[in-house]
């Protein structure tokens, strides 16, 4: 995505974001920009503020101070409903533990995201089936989450995240709950998505995931960005 002046458009901009939980400071003056088409990995020790950073960008939590702009939208200006619509239209989220609805088969889990926007059931299912097909699990569309493997569940979760064509895909430890084989499959999927232009921000403990999928690495410690570096993707 190229802006009028020829530079790549900034999708995410954080200015001096601070987040406190009681006496503890989870984020301390974080400023950050992510441009369209980038794949950014956030790494750091447990409790350093990685997930909090992701939640701020996803609009799941509000900063104590500072501002968060995503795709031109100032999240501080949005109320709860506005944030819900923002999540629905602008971002997609992938979780470590998938967070699928156990009562719905794979296809309906994916279609759900579109149906919330008012898309008809038939259209939503058509689009969901296309996505499942692209991710290679169309044959598992009528299977319930309990009967899917970990890798399959995460693919369903990714399909759901992509359902409304988000500007930004957020992934929180996307391979954290998977065995190495399934983890590889998900990594390949994320690389493919980024290569077709999907902006990606992932939080991970796994250096392999970062080096394989991301073009930029941000390291966090004690709520601050301590280092930022470009990455050469390893095959």
């Amino acid at each position: 995505m190229i802006s009028e002046d020829g530079s790549e458009q900034v999708i995410v901009r954080l200015d001096g974001v601070r987040k406190e939980y009681g006496d503890s400071v989870a984020l301390d003056g974080v400023s950050l920009e992510i441009r369209a088409g980038e794949a950014v990995a956030v790494m750091g020790p447990s409790g350093c503020g990685k997930s909090t950073l992701l939640n701020m960008i996803a609009g799941l939590d509000r900063p104590t101070a500072g501002s968060v702009f995503v795709d031109g939208e100032d999240l501080a200006q949005l109320n709860e409903t506005g944030l819900a619509l923002y999540r629905r239209r602008r971002i997609g989220m992938v979780f470590q533990f998938f967070n699928l609805i156990d009562d719905l088969p794979a296809l309906d889990n994916v279609a759900l995201a579109a149906q919330l926007t008012g898309t008809s059931a038939a259209q939503a299912r058509k689009r969901a089936l296309e996505l499942l097909d692209e991710l290679g699990i169309a044959d598992r569309r009528n299977v319930y989450p309990a009967a899917l493997s970990g890798g399959e569940r995460q693919r369903v979760a990714v399909a759901r995240a992509l359902m409304n064509r988000p500007a930004l895909l957020l992934a929180d430890e996307p391979t954290g709950a998977l065995d190495s084989h399934a983890g590889e499959q998900v990594m390949d999927l994320l690389i493919d998505l980024n290569q077709i232009g999907q902006t990606l921000l992932m939080v991970t403990h796994d250096p392999r995931l970062a080096t394989r999928c991301a073009s930029r690495l941000i390291e966090v410690a004690d709520g601050r960005l301590v280092r930022e570096s470009a990455l050469e993707r390893t095959p």
């Binding site: 819900a84 699928l100 759901r160």
Partner: peptide, 15 residues
């Protein structure tokens, strides 16, 4: 958990 997930994919408080 389901409610949290539904909200994370865009379900509004009213919904």
């Amino acid at each position: 958990r389901d409610l949290g997930m539904l909200k994370s994919i865009g379900m509004t408080p009213r919904q």
